[in-house]
């Protein structure tokens, strides 16, 4: 009788071990997927914020610029999450309207310490 109970216990343990293994495998897969998705969403949000920051920087530089001067080079640095976006442009006031041309972008690595 005790030998049968032992066999049944071993069988139950084997079933539980297999199900547990499958469950943990599944959980790791989902967790990895969720982390990757979060990272991509964060990256997209950082890019959107960087775009807004570019327009804000341009507005600020336009306020500081001399409208009587011709094409004048401007530069601003925007952190976009993983690096810094260094943007150089040329700005001029043509017939009362500010015009921008010659966009050039460089990504400068952001040095961080852990």
């Amino acid at each position: 009788m005790s030998s049968r109970a032992g066999s049944a216990l071993i069988a139950v343990l084997i079933v539980m071990a297999v199900l547990g293994f499958l469950w943990v495998g599944d959980w790791v897969l989902r967790l990895t997927d969720e982390m990757t998705r979060d990272r991509v969403i964060q990256m997209e949000q950082k890019h959107r914020s960087a775009s807004q920051a570019e327009w804000d920087a341009l507005d600020r530089l336009i306020r500081e610029a001399d409208p009587l001067e011709g094409w004048q080079p401007i530069e601003y640095v925007i952190p976009d999450g993983v690096s810094e976006r260094v943007v150089s442009l040329k700005l001029a006031n043509v017939n009362g309207q500010w015009m921008v041309k010659d966009r050039q972008v460089l990504w400068r690595a952001k040095v961080v310490s852990h």
Partner: peptide
């Protein structure tokens, strides 16, 4: 997931060509 990984890679890559354009 593999298909999504490709799309994620594209999401990371495209700003590299679109932002400086």
């Amino acid at each position: 997931m593999i298909e999504r990984a490709d799309l994620d890679a594209a999401t990371f890559y495209l700003p590299l060509v679109v932002v400086p354009a």
